[in-house]
């Protein structure tokens, strides 16, 4: 069903051929493929391509799907504006601490 040019990660425009190539080089998990190709690093953060990539790894290597682990799911779980992350909320924000150096004025990044 797939040809070499079929897009697998639409955000980063990674093709089937590129995924196949890194599997040849030894990639066995989604995160392996991600580190080598940027697959899954776009705006959707792998929400669309995770299963597509797992299926390709399965087809290419014969490794069963339950042996192909989930990708690491990191914060923030979905896209958020930096401005929102850095608001001068009175309650604490662990996320904010990373960005404490950003200067704020009326809750907006100056």
């Amino acid at each position: 069903m797939l040809d070499k040019t079929t897009i697998i990660c639409r955000c980063e425009e990674i093709s089937y051929e590129e995924i196949e190539e890194v599997i040849d080089q030894g990639a066995r998990t989604f995160d392996d493929v991600k580190r080598l190709t940027r697959c899954g690093m776009g705006p959707c953060q792998a929400k669309i391509c995770t299963n597509l990539v797992a299926n390709i790894i399965h087809e290419q290597t014969g490794r069963p799907l339950h042996k192909i682990p989930l990708p690491r799911m990191r914060m923030p779980l979905s896209p958020i504006k930096l401005e929102t992350l850095t608001t001068d909320s009175t309650s604490f924000s662990a996320v904010k601490s990373v960005l404490d150096e950003v200067e704020l004025e009326d809750g907006k990044v100056r």
């Binding site: 914060m75 504006k81 924000s93 996320v95």
Partner: peptide, 22 residues
């Protein structure tokens, strides 16, 4: 509102798109 992550003390990090609060 959306859950965007977890604080170190186990509180859920929630955003209303203006602010992030536990």
């Amino acid at each position: 509102h959306r859950v965007i992550g977890l604080y170190a003390d186990g509180s859920i990090g929630v955003t209303d798109e203006k602010d992030v609060f536990p």
